[in-house]
Amino acid sequence: MSEFSLKIDGKDVAASDDMTILEAAQSAGIAIPTVCHHEKLEPFGGCRLCTVEAEAGGRTSLVAACIYPAQKDMAVKTRTPQIDKIRKVLTEQLLAYAPESEVLRGLAREYHADKDRFPKEPSFCILCGLCVRYCAEVKQKSAVGFVERGPNREISFVPEIAAKECWDCKECFPLCPTSALQAAYVLTRSLTSFKSTAQPEAGKQAATNTVPQ
């Protein structure tokens, strides 16, 4: 593992070759917005809000900071008019799915995004995959996963696993940037509760805890 330095927003930042641009920036206290990133999880590169301008070997390109490896003598810019515009449009698109999300509303203020630019399709899920990846990588239960594809893609709990594992865990709930997961969870519980008579008390308790905001 070699140590080197690169420039981020004109500042010299020390990094090693197992670090991404995002990690290097965070170690130097430079903020890059992210929605699908979580430090305990493998990089995903789903939301693209961490897009930055990276110059290496005389070439400039727009890359996702959370998955792009830091390189020696690279020059990174985290705020340019072009990047701001990309983040603005991405935020506007995500807001069409989750208009009430606090995380997205914060980004909208920062990048002057118009929350009503695109017609609303409130699925309340922006498919960041945080719950799916957290369940698979950290908890290793895979109780929740993606189903379908393209515009029909959504998250879905596997009832057999969810009935066993989710009552006492629910660690994916606070990760959700839109609070959509609670709704999905309640739906699955309502589908499975009539089958599982094992823990009626736990089920009742969970029902009061998981009302979506």
Binding site: C135, A136, K141, A143, G145, F146, V147, S156, I161
Partner: peptide, 12 residues
């Protein structure tokens, strides 16, 4: 293989 991954694959 987790069931969620199989569901992901067969619905994709």
């Amino acid at each position: 293989v987790p069931m969620s991954r199989i569901q992901h694959t067969v619905t994709f």
